Computed example of a mutant assay.
Amino acid sequence: MYGWIWRHLPGNTWVKAFISLLLILGTVYVLFQYVFPWAEPLLPFSDVTVDESMGSVR
């Protein structure tokens, strides 16, 4: 898949590398701004159970 993307980007190696960097940064931005906040309520991170019978650790 990455090879296909690389072959279809315009320009020489430096231009392709710059466009690839922009694509990566854009993907990370979309994930952090839209996808992760949408998915957070669906994930069980707040369902933490601590057993009080274990006592204190010394």
Rank of each mutant, 00 (worst) to 15 (best):
L25N: 05
L21G: 02
L42Q: 11
F36A: 15
D51I: 03
S56F: 06
R7N: 15
S46H: 14
L9Q: 05
I5Q: 07
H8I: 02
R58S: 14
F45E: 10
D51T: 05
M54F: 11
K16W: 01
H8A: 04
I24P: 00
W6I: 06
I5W: 06
V50D: 15
V28W: 03
M54K: 13
L25K: 06
E52Y: 05
R58Q: 13
R58P: 09
I5M: 09
S20R: 00
G55H: 04
W38D: 04
G26W: 00
T49Q: 12
L25P: 01
P10E: 04
G55Y: 09
L43D: 11
R7I: 08
A39T: 06
P37A: 07
A39S: 12
R58C: 05
V48N: 13
G26R: 00
V15C: 05
Y2M: 04
M1W: 11
L31K: 10
V15G: 02
Q33A: 07
L9Y: 04
Y2F: 09
V30W: 05
V15D: 02
V15T: 07
L22M: 12
F32L: 09
F45I: 11
A17P: 01
L25I: 09
E52V: 11
S53Y: 04
L21I: 01
R58Y: 07
F45S: 12
V35M: 11
V35W: 13
S46Y: 14
V57H: 08
L22V: 03
L31I: 11
I5P: 02
A39H: 04
A17M: 10
H8L: 10
G11I: 00
L23S: 01
F32Q: 15
F18K: 03
Y29G: 02
W14N: 05
L23Y: 01
G26V: 00
F45C: 08
Y2H: 12
M54G: 11
R7D: 15
T49C: 03
F32G: 10
R58W: 07
Y34V: 12
V57R: 09
W14Y: 12
T27P: 00
S53F: 03
L23P: 00
T27K: 02
S53Q: 14
V28L: 13
V57W: 15
S20E: 00
Y34L: 08
M1G: 10
L21W: 02
Y29T: 04
N12F: 04
F45W: 07
W6E: 05
I5D: 06
I24K: 00
L21C: 08
F32D: 12
I19C: 00
F36L: 09
S56T: 06
V57Q: 11
Y2P: 14
V28Y: 02
V57C: 12
F32M: 13
P41Y: 12
